[in-house]
Structures are given as structure tokens and as C-alpha cells.
């Protein structure tokens, strides 16, 4: 029987050739659809302006990267503290961490950006937009990272802790040589995905005029009215960061397969 080149059984991994051809086909169809949509508007895409503003776009891109990396580091620290705090024996600490996670996860980032920047930021006299924005974003992502770390910790089999103690490791040795390595294996794929979220979420800092990638594009498009081109380019630039991260996450998932 001739195999249908467009079909794979449930759970079957298509051959690399078959997979790439089908993927390419999908991409072409999507692009053609976009092309048709733009064409129906009687609009001619013109990316000629990009050369003149490439320095600004580059700066915005770099600022997005800087905010994201700083935010990842801070939100990891917040997440670790909150995850530990949620397991604390001291109830006020435990509930404080719980409340933090609930409020942050239960409200939109846009509200947090405005509220924390204009109300809390102003009252504390923070006027550096880069750091204000990075801290707000870190506070937001920290709640999600806390949950990822908490889940990773909870998924470690009790026998692993027992075994660590049984071979004679002290508490800190057990943490260092058994618990943390297993936590890393279990959480790295999800943390990579969260980093991609940070990159995307940082776009909301444009609301408080942090001139990162999105804000740069908003400014450029308001000057030259090349709205479509600007936002196509904006999407492509975000994908240039998030798609490699996605691939990295999959790589971690395969590498640490034993943990899942």
C-alpha cells in the first residue's frame, strides 16, 4: 500500500523528510493566506524604511533582551524564595507567599504594570523606567516560576530523599547532590518556556514608555504609518528569540527524559 505522504498514525514520528516537507507546506499556506489578506486591502508592503531605523530597532531588541535576562535572574530568585516560603512551617510566611502567588496570577499584567509603576513606584520614588519595569515583570513572572519550582520539588519521589539520607549525606549535601540536580532536570524545560513568556510579556512595559522592542516599533509606526510592516517585523523579531528557546526547551526535555 502506498503510504499517504500527509498522514502519520497517532503517536508515530514521521521521518525527518516527511516532517519538514509537511511543515514547509503549512508555512507556505499560512504565508499565502497572509499575502492574500494584505493584497485584498489594496496595500503594498514596503519594508524600505527598515534600513533607516535599523539602529533604533537594534537598540530596542537589545533592551528587550536585557530586560528579559535581568528579569529571568530576579524572578528565579523570587520564585525560589516563594517556593521555599510556601513550604515554611511559619504560617504567616506560608500564607504571605500563597497570597502573593494568588494575586499575581489572578490579575492581568497590564494592571500590575500600571498599578505598580504609577502608584507604588511613585510613592517609593522609583523613576528609573528600566529597573521599575524589570522589577514589575520579575514580580509577575516570579509567581509562575514559584509554581514551577514547587511542582518540581513535589514531584521528586520521597524515596530519593530517603536514599540521600540513607547513604549518609547531610541535609545540605542531599540538597546539593540529589535534590537540586533532580529539580533542575524536572524544571528546566518549563523554565525555558517561562523565559519565552518573559520575553513576550516584556512587551507590556511599552505601556510605561520603556523603549524596548515593542515600544520602538510603536514609535516608528506612528511616525511613518507603516503599521503592517512594523508589526510583521515585530513578530518576526520576537520569534527570533522564542523559537530557539522553544527548541532549547525540547532539547532539555529529551536530555532529562528520565525525570518525566
Amino acid at each position: 500500500m502506498a503510504r499517504n505522504p500527509f498522514v502519520a498514525a497517532a503517536g508515530e514520528r514521521p521521518s525527518p523528510l516527511k516532517a519538514s516537507l509537511n511543515y514547509l507546506l503549512v508555512c507556505l499556506v499560512v504565508l499565502a493566506g497572509l499575502w492574500a489578506a494584505v493584497g485584498s486591502l489594496d496595500y503594498v508592503l514596503d519594508f524600505g524604511f527598515v534600513g533607516q531605523v535599523s539602529k533604533r530597532i537594534g537598540d530596542g531588541f537589545l533592551l528587550t533582551l536585557r530586560i528579559s535576562v535581568a528579569s529571568l535572574a530576579i524572578s528565579l530568585a523570587i520564585g525560589a524564595l516563594v517556593a521555599a516560603g510556601k513550604g515554611s512551617r511559619i504560617l504567616p510566611i506560608r500564607y504571605l507567599c500563597d497570597l502573593y502567588v494568588r494575586i499575581i496570577r489572578g490579575t492581568p499584567l497590564i494592571m500590575q504594570v500600571y498599578l505598580f509603576f504609577y502608584v507604588i513606584g511613585t510613592s517609593l520614588g522609583i523613576d528609573d523606567r528600566f529597573w521599575a519595569g524589570t522589577l514589575i515583570l520579575s514580580g509577575f513572572e516570579g509567581a509562575y516560576i514559584a509554581e514551577i519550582l514547587r511542582g518540581g520539588l513535589a514531584s521528586i519521589d520521597a524515596t530519593q530523599r530517603d536514599a540521600a539520607r540513607a547513604v549518609g549525606l547531610t541535609r545540605s549535601q542531599a540538597l546539593r547532590h540529589v535534590i537540586v540536580p533532580q529539580m533542575v532536570a524536572r524544571t528546566l524545560p518549563a523554565l525555558t518556556g517561562q523565559f519565552a513568556s518573559i520575553v513576550k510579556d516584556s512587551s507590556l512595559l511599552s505601556l510605561i514608555s520603556v523603549v524596548e522592542l515593542t515600544q520602538t516599533m510603536r514609535e516608528i509606526s506612528s511616525q511613518n504609518f507603516r503599521l503592517f510592516e512594523c508589526y510583521f517585523l515585530l513578530g518576526a523579531l520576537y520569534l527570533a528569540i522564542t523559537l530557539p528557546l522553544d527548541a532549547l526547551g525540547r532539547h532539555f526535555e529529551r536530555r532529562f527524559d528520565y525525570a518525566h
Binding site: A163, G168, Q182
Partner: peptide, 21 residues
């Protein structure tokens, strides 16, 4: 004082006692 005591004794669990990583 327990870590030193445990270190002087071998322990084999019913299953999954090996460090998974």
C-alpha cells in the same frame, strides 16, 4: 549525629532507591 550513623549502615529500598539522575 545521624548522618555518620547512617553512613555506617547500608540500606536497600524496595524500589526506586537509586538516585534517578
Amino acid at each position: 549525629s545521624l548522618p555518620a550513623y547512617r553512613a555506617s549502615i547500608g540500606y536497600v529500598f524496595q524500589q526506586n532507591g537509586l538516585f534517578q539522575h
